[in-house]
């Protein structure tokens, strides 16, 4: 059974039909990049995968759990699925260490000591071991995003959802974040990334998914997607971004 299974999902915002029958299966350890024009439904699809948005038809399962917006489901899902946002969404009133330790202590019921050990390990992994006691506002955007990644990793998720996690960063800070993500990919965590970084999609992903008009228009290995696009829409898109 695939780790993530999306089966004919339809999503409406009022009358607006945003997802029009999306099917997607993702295996453990796969790295998937979702690309597509603005408004094609990439974020919406991602947010449906962990219960931030509801959908009206079809079904999604992640790690054997059915995804709904019910509080209990979302809470259970948080142990399997982590999410990184474009705007980091760190908690500004907490230190870096507290940001990372909060959920493991109150959701996973780890002791403070256990959580501290994990937090330090994750911070080391993202190269910020010395920032444990800093506040988010004292960090650069790239550092904040890496803390957000460490925060998600501390919950030891099986899947990490990343929605344009470098879009809010100054160009010179993009690299340090992508490097961390690349390292995670090598370690074998399942990654689903919405991204505009085409080079990254080409070099790091196992499979690229092109979304258009609320549907998965085309998918395949990055080589095929970027070098041999089958549809007119993907050709146009690839030419416009490369």
């Amino acid at each position: 059974m695939p780790l993530v299974k999306i089966n004919d999902v339809h999503k409406y915002y009022g009358d607006l039909h945003v997802l029009k029958g999306v099917n997607l299966s993702i295996k453990q350890g796969e790295v998937i990049c979702i690309i597509g024009r603005s408004g094609s439904g990439k974020s919406t699809l991602l947010r449906c995968m962990n219960g931030l948005e509801d959908y009206q038809k079809g079904g999604i399962t992640v790690d054997y759990k059915e995804v709904t917006t019910e509080d209990i489901q979302v809470k259970a899902l948080a142990k399997s699925v982590g999410m990184i946002f474009q705007n980091f969404n760190l908690f500004p009133h907490l230190t870096v260490g507290q940001n990372i330790m909060l959920a493991p202590t109150i959701v996973l019921k780890q002791s403070t000591e256990e959580a501290r050990v994990v937090a330090k390990k994750m911070l080391t992994k993202v190269g910020l071991a010395d920032k444990f006691d800093s506040y988010p506002e004292q960090l650069s955007g790239g550092q904040q995003q890496r803390v957000a990644i460490a925060r998600a990793l501390a919950m030891s998720p099986k899947v990490l959802l990343c929605d344009e996690i470098t879009s809010a960063l100054d160009p010179e800070l993009v690299g340090e974040v992508l490097k961390v993500v690349e390292q995670l990919a090598e370690e074998g965590i399942t990654l689903i990334l919405v991204t505009h970084e085409m080079n990254f999609a080409r070099d790091v992903s196992d499979r690229v998914v092109f979304m258009n008009q609320g549907k998965i228009w085309e998918e395949g290995p990055p080589k095929d997607i970027f070098e041999k696009p089958q549809t007119e829409e993907l050709k146009l898109f690839v030419n416009s971004v490369l």
């Binding site: 931030l52 979302v74 948080a78 969404n89 959920a103 919950m155």
Partner: peptide
């Protein structure tokens, strides 16, 4: 407060009341 504070909390598995207590109220109090 940014909606992202609620969303990040939810994604980390915090319940509504936990989010209120640990994330929202400490910031709103200021």
């Amino acid at each position: 407060l940014p909606k992202g504070q609620w969303e990040a909390s939810r994604c980390l598995g915090l319940s509504f009341l936990q989010t209120l207590r640990y994330i929202i109220l400490p910031q709103a109090i200021k």
